[in-house]
Design a protein around this nucleic acid. Structure first.
Lengths: 152, 152
DNA sequence: TTTCATGTAACTTTAAATAGTGCGTGATGA
DNA sequence: TCATCACGCACTATTTAAAGTTACATGAAA
C-alpha cells in the first residue's frame, strides 16, 4: 500500500498560500512541496469546486484562498478532496454469503466506523486559522537570525 | 493503495478451525477462503509463533487452535500478524524541516494516534469465543433445511 | 499576439499488499 | 525403507492506488 498523503499535502499547500498574500502559481507551490505542478492543480481542484480557493489564469494568475481561514476546518478539506479512505484495512469480502465472514465483519465494522467517526470529529475541530497560528508560533520560536521558512 | 485484509482473513481462518474440531490442512483452509495454501501458512505463521495455533507436518497433520478461544482477543491476533498499519493516510514527510509541515503534522498526528488507540481498544474487547458464538447464532437463525455453511 | 497560467486527459512510474511457484524438511504409514 | 503428505521458506509475479509526467487546449494579461 502506498500511503495516501493528499490531506497532509493539501493542508501544507493551503498554509503556504495563506502565508504568501498574493496569488501563487502551481509551479511555485510545486517547488515548495517538491512535487509536480499538475499534482498541485489536481489536489486543489476539489477545493476550488468547493469554494475554498480561487484560481486565475494568465499573467499574475495563480491560486488564492477564497475564505476566512477560521471558516475552513480540516474536515472541510478532507471532504473537498473526495473523502479518501481513512482505514488501511477492510473486510476480505463485502456482502459475504459465508456466515463466518459475516460474524467477523460484524465484529470489525463498528470498530472501524467508530474510529473513522472519531477521526472526522477531530478534523472538524481544527480550523486552518489554528494551523496558521501554530505555524506562526513555530516561526517565532526559531533562532532570530533565521529570516525565512524556505525549503531545502 | 491496496487494502489490507489480513486481520479479517486470519479471523476467518481461525473461526473455521474452531468449527472443525480436527487438524485442518492449509489446503482445506485455502479452499474455504478461496485463496492459496501458502497464503494460509503465511497468515498463520505469526499466530503459531505467538502460540495461538499449532501446526503439524505429515499425514494427519495440519492446523489446530492451541488455546481457549475465550483467551484470544482480536487484538492478540492483530499483534500476532505483525501489527499492520491501521490508517490509510500518513504525513507527506516524517521529521520535516519545513515549519508549515510541522504544524500540519502536529495537528494530524494526535488525531490518528487517538483513532488507532480506539481501534485497538475495540479489538482487545472482543474474544474469538464471542465471534464463534455470534457465528453459531447466525447458523441457528438460518432456514432449517440448510445443513452446512460451506462456500460456493 | 505573445506569454503566462490554469484545466484536463492520458499515460507512466512507484510502493505495498496479495498471490503464486518451487523446493526443502520432517512426519506418517504401508 | 520409501512413497506420500503437509508445512516452511525463499523467491517471483500480479494487482491496486497514489504519485508523477507529458501533452495540449483554454483563457487572461501585457
Amino acid at each position: 500500500m502506498k500511503r495516501d498523503s493528499r490531506l497532509s499535502g493539501v493542508l501544507h499547500v493551503l498554509l503556504h498560500m495563506a502565508e504568501h498574500r498574493a496569488p501563487m502559481t502551481s509551479e511555485q507551490l510545486a517547488k515548495a512541496m517538491q512535487t509536480n505542478p499538475v499534482v498541485i492543480r489536481r489536489i486543489l481542484g476539489g477545493l476550488r469546486d468547493a469554494g475554498f480557493v480561487h484560481s486565475e489564469k494568465g499573467h499574475g494568475g495563480g491560486w488564492t484562498i477564497a475564505r476566512d481561514l477560521a471558516a475552513i476546518t480540516m474536515r472541510d478539506v478532507y471532504d473537498a478532496i473526495g473523502r479518501p479512505k481513512l482505514m488501511a484495512m477492510g473486510n476480505r469480502t463485502e456482502a459475504p454469503g459465508c456466515l463466518v465472514e459475516q460474524a467477523v465483519n460484524a465484529a470489525l465494522d463498528p470498530a472501524f466506523r467508530d474510529a473513522e467517526a472519531l477521526l472526522l470529529a477531530r478534523f472538524a475541530a481544527v480550523t486552518l486559522a489554528e494551523l496558521a497560528a501554530d505555524f506562526q508560533a513555530r516561526m517565532a520560536a526559531r533562532p532570530p537570525h533565521i529570516k525565512d521558512h524556505h525549503h531545502g
